[in-house]
Nucleic acid binder design. Structure first.
Lengths: 234, 234
DNA sequence: GCAAAAGTGTTATACGTACACCCATGA
DNA sequence: TCATGGGTGTACGTATAACACTTTTGC
């Protein structure tokens, strides 16, 4: 590996924006930094990529090591952040991942005793200075990606338990988009999007009223027709 | 910069998928590799990121150095490729960019005498082994991104000269998507998408028939309503 | 005039929205 | 039987697709 010394040396890290819907709130998993720089600040879970380790594998490993989230249902590459001074310790390029998980209950730190916990996305975005490095920008990009992807990709089901009702799915959309949706029309839309939902047997009555049918995530990789956000209100 | 030696050392490169529509064909800008590895194979223009250089700046610089394309109209980050063995020389992570340019005529090599030329996208995708490294995968991802982005983002105008007719714009869609579109309905759709097109004065008659009005790219950052591909035919 | 391409009109159908209404349960 | 939420029906307005038709040029 002679040639690497002929070129600038980089460290490569991964950071994971792990989103969930918990307790009627759209939340993100953050750790409290124990070391310098930005000691004591909140940050996205993440860390250095190992030699011979794939980028996505590194993202999953770091998430598991630093938090109690062992296997998010969904993870995708978001973008790469490499501004020259983004890390005061040296030239570091970070590959950010977006993960979505169902409600996993209270978070605990991982094996390296990091302090991990869920935070309301809206509150963190409103106070970007509370996050270390450029993590507020990464979080903002991730949230926008998630909001957009709900429209044309069956991402909402990744926030739900394995079996869920259409009302629970609608709740995901409402919380992530910050809007209210007509239950009747939402019902028809998701059921007409081929492959979005598979019927599961049985019903459930969480919270009174007529029991709702249960569904599982279907095989579709995109939603036709898409469920569009209102553009008027933006 | 003591700490970088505590962690695996990476090289970081950028690769640029520069797409255009030229001579009634959807094409990509490739260089012929002059050195090892993959000597003589075709590859995406790209190279190592310099110290203190932003990633997008590096992409623009490498494109300009290796080809005659000095300033693509549009460039965006596509994705990052970092499989452990993607470069036999050592651990390298490549941040890929997607660029779109209007017809720039024949390509010539850049200052470092690389051999740059335009190639039909379909032909290159059909022979993925002709490309070095994992560049066939990067190209495939870029083409899919471009096709998808035509639907909801005013990307097609980036492939046109500063002033263009609606038929020329439609031709971009037809070549990139590989479909035929109804000229009448396309006309109304793009004109009704607020901010997609600004009227320019004057008309042109390239190729007989009634002269067409000229337009410039408008300020819109997204298309409402989107122009959707046919999902039936896929 | 004729061919060719630009651009407009027209109509049937599909789709989205709003909201009324019925259904199935627990209390 | 009432409250609650699940789920369906329906009507109306808007968007889309197909294609006929008019406009404006070159030859």
């Amino acid at each position: 590996m002679v040639y690497t010394s002929d070129y600038p040396i980089f460290s490569v890290t991964v950071d994971v924006v792990c989103l969930t819907v918990r307790d009627d709130r759209f939340q993100v998993l953050l750790i409290r930094r124990g070391g310098s720089p930005h000691k004591g600040k909140l940050a996205l879970p993440g860390g250095f990529v190992h030699e011979n380790e794939d980028l996505e594998a590194a993202a999953r490993r770091e998430l598991a090591e630093e938090t109690s989230v062992r296997a998010p249902r969904y993870i995708e590459q978001l973008a790469t952040y490499g501004a020259p001074r983004r890390d005061p310790r040296g030239r570091t390029v970070s590959v950010a991942y977006l993960a979505a998980a169902p409600d996993l209950g209270e978070a605990t730190g991982g094996s390296d005793a990091a302090d991990a916990s869920w935070h309301d996305v809206g509150e963190v975005l409103a106070r970007p200075k509370t996050l270390a490095f450029d993590h507020a920008q990464i979080l903002a990009d991730a949230v926008e990606r998630a909001r957009a992807k709900l429209e044309y990709f069956p991402l909402a089901a990744e926030f739900c338990p394995p079996e869920f009702t259409i009302a629970e799915l609608r709740h995901i959309y409402e919380l992530v988009w910050g809007t209210n949706l007509d239950p009747a029309n939402f019902h028809r839309k998701v059921r007409s999007a081929k492959g979005f939902l598979d019927s599961a047997d049985g019903t459930t009555a969480r919270g009174g009223g007529r029991p709702a049918r249960l569904f599982r995530k279907g095989p579709a990789r995109e939603l036709h027709p898409p469920l569009m956000r209102d553009r008027e209100s933006r």
